[in-house]
């Protein structure tokens, strides 16, 4: 971006460049499937969807806890379930050599999945 296009900015040009680079790298985080990486690409896709569902379940659970309608026993069971789900997810990520950053997909105009 040429300097004369910047109408207002309180930071330095380096700072803007840094932020723009972050935005560009976000745009690049699309799912790439090809014959060469079909296995890892598919694992990434499946785990991304699993992680999305796990997070939705977790959020819903937090809303129920926050609502104060759960008994101590239910809280105990919910805590155990969520903890085991998270541990299993960590195990799978490690197995397929994926990080949290990998488990996100850029859906173009819709933005990021998570």
């Amino acid at each position: 971006m040429s300097e004369n296009k910047i109408l207002f900015n309180t930071g330095s040009l380096d700072e803007i460049s840094e932020e723009m680079a972050k935005l560009a790298s976000k745009e690049e985080s699309r799912l790439e499937l090809s014959p060469e990486n079909a296995d890892s690409g598919l694992a990434k896709l499946v785990l991304t969807i699993v992680e999305l569902i796990r997070k939705l379940v977790e959020k819903q659970a937090m809303r129920r806890v926050d609502g104060g309608s759960l008994t101590e026993e239910e809280i105990e069971r919910l805590g155990e379930t969520l903890m085991k789900l998270e541990m299993k997810m960590e195990e799978l990520k490690k197995h397929f050599n994926l990080t949290d950053r990998d488990l996100n997909i850029n859906l173009g105009p819709l933005g990021n999945l998570m």
Binding site: E58, K59, A61, M62, V65, D66, E72, I75, E76, R77, L78, G79, E80, L82, M83
Partner: peptide, 16 residues
Amino acid sequence: KSIYSKYLYKKLKEHR
């Protein structure tokens, strides 16, 4: 508290 309840309350704090 058990580790499961502590985990859940930690998650609740993060959620809030």
